[in-house]
Design a protein around this nucleic acid. Structure first.
Lengths: 208, 208
DNA sequence: TAGATTGTTAATCGATTAACAATC
DNA sequence: TAGATTGTTAATCGATTAACAATC
C-alpha cells in the first residue's frame, strides 16, 4: 500500500465518489471528465489526473464507466465493510451527530454513545445505547468500534480521547477546540467550528 | 485592500492569533518564531514568512511583541466590531451552535434564531429569540445580522440561504450536505461532517 | 560588541494547467 | 475510418523550506 495522495486529492476523490453514486442511482453508466468536472466544480484536467490515481480507468473517446469509478473509489474510502463508530458526549452536538442522516447513508454506524450524565446513561437514543464514559475501554473493543467522535467540552476531550485510544480505536474525529495529542498510529481529524467562522470573517474582510 | 492570502496562510494566522491571545493573558510580552512554531505545530520559517504579511512586525534578536501581533491579526480577522450572526434551524445542531461557548468568546454573537416549527417560534433559548423562518428577510436587516448559520435539512438549505442573501448577509456557514449556489458577493464556507468522516477513513486506510 | 533572531532571497518541492499523442 | 475523450508529458504556478545578511 502506497501513501501518496494529498489531502486535496482525497477531498476531490470523495466528491467524485458521491457524484457517481448519484449517477448510478439515476441509471447513468458513463461520464466524461468534462461532465464530472462540471458537476463537482473542478476542471476536466484535474478530474482526469485524479482518476489515474489507481491506473487508467477511462475509455478514450467515451469517458468513465460510473460503476468502475465507484468500485475503485470504494476501495480508497474503505467501504468494503461498515465503519463502527463510538460517540463520546451526548449533548446537543452529540445528538446532532447521532441523528445525522448522512452518516448511516455513507456507511458510518454509531453503535454506542458515552456520557457522564446519569440521566442519559442506561437509556437508548434512536436505538443507540448510552454507556458511562468509564466504560469506553470495555465497550469499544466488544463492539469492534474503530472510530470515535469526540463531542465533549474542551477540558474533557484529551481524557476521553486517551480512553478511546486505549480502547483501540484507529481514528478520532474531534469537535472540541483543543489540540489533542495522540500516538502516531492513531489518526486524527479536527472540526473546529469557530475556526470556520473566523475563515468566513476573513473572506468577508476580503483577504481571501 | 489587497486580496493576497491563501486559505492555508489564513488558517495558520488564525492559530497564531489564538496563541498570542493566550500568551497575553498569561502575561508574556514577547515570543520568537521558534516558540510560536512549537506551540502551533508549524515551522519557524513558516511563521516568519506568514507574519510578514502586513510588513515587518518582529524585532531582530528579540522576537515578536505579542500585543503587536495581536493588533495586526485582529485587523485580518475583522475583530474591530462584534459579528452579529443569525442561526437558521434550531434542531440539535442549531442548539449545539447556540450553546457553543467559543463563538461568543471569539466575538461571534448569535442574535436571532429561525425555525419553522411552531413549538419553537416565539420562545427564547439562552436569551436568543426564535423567529419563524419567513421572518428572515425582515429580522436580519433590523438586527444588522451579517452572517448566517445554515443548520437545516439539505432540502431546505438553498431556500433559507436565498432568504439570508435577500436579507443582506455577507457570509454563510453551511452545515447542510448540499452545494449551495450563492451570488459572487456572498461568501460561503461549508462544514460537511460526513466528508470529515470519509477523510478520517482514508487516513485509516493509509492513503494519506 | 557579541548573541540572537528577524526578514528576505533563492532553492526546492509539489500541485495545477495546457496541450496533444494515443486509443477506443 | 472519423470523432471523441482519455492518459501523459511538459510548462506553469504557487507554496514551503533553507540559508544568511541585516539588525536589534
Amino acid at each position: 500500500m502506497q501513501r501518496k495522495l494529498s489531502i486535496g486529492t482525497v477531498e476531490r476523490l470523495i466528491h467524485y465518489y458521491r457524484c457517481v453514486e448519484e449517477l448510478i442511482i439515476e441509471g447513468q453508466t458513463c461520464i466524461s471528465s468534462e461532465e464530472l468536472a462540471e458537476k463537482t466544480g473542478y476542471t476536466p484536467a484535474q478530474v482526469r489526473k485524479d482518476l489515474t490515481w489507481h491506473g487508467a480507468l477511462g475509455v478514450p473517446g467515451k469517458g468513465y464507466a460510473t460503476d468502475v469509478v465507484q468500485q475503485v473509489l470504494r476501495k480508497l474510502l474503505g467501504k468494503h465493510r461498515p465503519r463502527l463508530v463510538g460517540l463520546v458526549g451526548v449533548g446537543h452536538l452529540g445528538l446532532a451527530l447521532l441523528r445525522h442522516p448522512d452518516f448511516h447513508k455513507h456507511g458510518f454506524h454509531i453503535v454506542a454513545g458515552f456520557d457522564k450524565e446519569l440521566t442519559k446513561i442506561g437509556h437508548s437514543i434512536d436505538g443507540v445505547y448510552i454507556y458511562d464514559v468509564s466504560q469506553i475501554e470495555k465497550v469499544c473493543p466488544l463492539l469492534k468500534i474503530e472510530m470515535g467522535l469526540v463531542a465533549v467540552p474542551p477540558l474533557e476531550a484529551q481524557k476521553v480521547s486517551d480512553a478511546l485510544i486505549r480502547a483501540g480505536v484507529l481514528g478520532i474525529l474531534n469537535f472540541a477546540a483543543v489540540r489533542l495529542s495522540v500516538p502516531s498510529h492513531v489518526h486524527l481529524e479536527n472540526v473546529d467550528l469557530s475556526i470556520e467562522l473566523e475563515k468566513l470573517s476573513c473572506r468577508i474582510e476580503g483577504w481571501l
